[in-house]
Design a protein around this nucleic acid. Sequence first.
DNA 1: CGTTCCATTGATTTTACTCAAGTCTAGTGG
DNA 2: CCACTAGACTTGAGTAAAATCAATGGAACG
Lengths: 225, 225
Amino acid sequence: MSRPDVIRVAPLVRRRVRLPKRDAAYSAGDAARSIYAVRAGTLKTHFTSRNGREKVAGFHLPGEIVGLDSLASATHPVSATALEDASLCEIPADALKTRATEFAALHHRLVENFGESSRRDRELATMLVLMSADERIATFLLDYSSRLAARGYAASEFLLRMTRDDIGNYLGLKLETVSRVLTRLANTGFIAVRSRHIAILDRDALQSVSTGTFVPSQSVDGARN
Amino acid sequence: MSRPDVIRVAPLVRRRVRLPKRDAAYSAGDAARSIYAVRAGTLKTHFTSRNGREKVAGFHLPGEIVGLDSLASATHPVSATALEDASLCEIPADALKTRATEFAALHHRLVENFGESSRRDRELATMLVLMSADERIATFLLDYSSRLAARGYAASEFLLRMTRDDIGNYLGLKLETVSRVLTRLANTGFIAVRSRHIAILDRDALQSVSTGTFVPSQSVDGARN
DNA sequence: CGTTCCATTGATTTTACTCAAGTCTAGTGG
DNA sequence: CCACTAGACTTGAGTAAAATCAATGGAACG
């Protein structure tokens, strides 16, 4: 969870793509021909697990890159779907591959990006294993906020572009639990919730919830595992 | 979870390292000078999460590579500790970096390796979110078995080199739960357990447990999330 | 060969899930 | 433009899976 994966690849961009809400930039299994920089809008990446259940892999804000994980294989391992009308820059994978070795700087950026995404995956796994529902939601909100801030958007008041169900799937919670936790955090005055509009009212408190230092209601522990 | 990340890097190896049980090849935060191929023995990678809790990131069998995730940053993001006396091949990172752009094939292997590890991380996250304790343990045993088999070891009878606590931490379960599930799987006759010695007696059944098709005791669902 | 770490098993509690009912919101068509 | 509808969200009550607490047994290690 963190900084957007900004990468300057202007000379490689093939074309702009308009992607209406609910449409997929690519689907799991598609030939891996391109990666995409998110220009505007929000995407989610998702896939069907071996036992047929749908899993949200991540959310992608403007300025971030999707599809990099396809460079290793012939096909896209996940699908990328627009949560709202979006606009993308398509970057052909072959150009990226051949010219990556050509230009050390670009190669370096790629390696960096992989490192970044593996760090994020590691943190997600940690979150799923070690954190309570409250900690996960608090962490999610703070991460979302900081990613928006890094792109120049308001950090303390924003619109969630995804459903409670998507958030829950991503964090390993049921949508009812997501709803309850948001309500609880709102009741303690740490955030304000108006459907998908979120305002962070007390960032420090939210931070302490995310680290398990503070626990909203009565339960005294917060420690898991 | 899957295939070992075999990579032929003989010409780059600097030296062999003997690593006694409980010693670390490197620790989180160390300068990222080298990556390591596991020659013999088993390692675990682990790190301290933001809230100070220890998390097992993965287990690494002979023939696999550790430390690749450090290429992106200046320091190692995780620690690598020997679960038993081990022997490693040290590969200097700078040689890998400079010569990776030199040799397209090696560069390709690196990209591939990142793709593989991100696939594994994604599956781990899925496992943690969507799977019951029984499914996780069954999946873990089958993965462990197939990784051993890929290196020429017996696939159906092996020794777990890590504690129940390590397994539990990795899978997001408490050690007691790990113990209980192993006992349950043994009672149904799918595996045999003698402390850390595991024998897979009915691979198909274990497979069906791992996919949630079969559920050992009484509970009828197996579905989560 | 005793000490320490690891594993098992049982009883109880807790967290988040499930099931269910009802409300709100945004998008649609009359 | 308003009414209608479908999807999204909230809230409540009861349940289940795994965590926690606790005590004992077994293996490994110096």
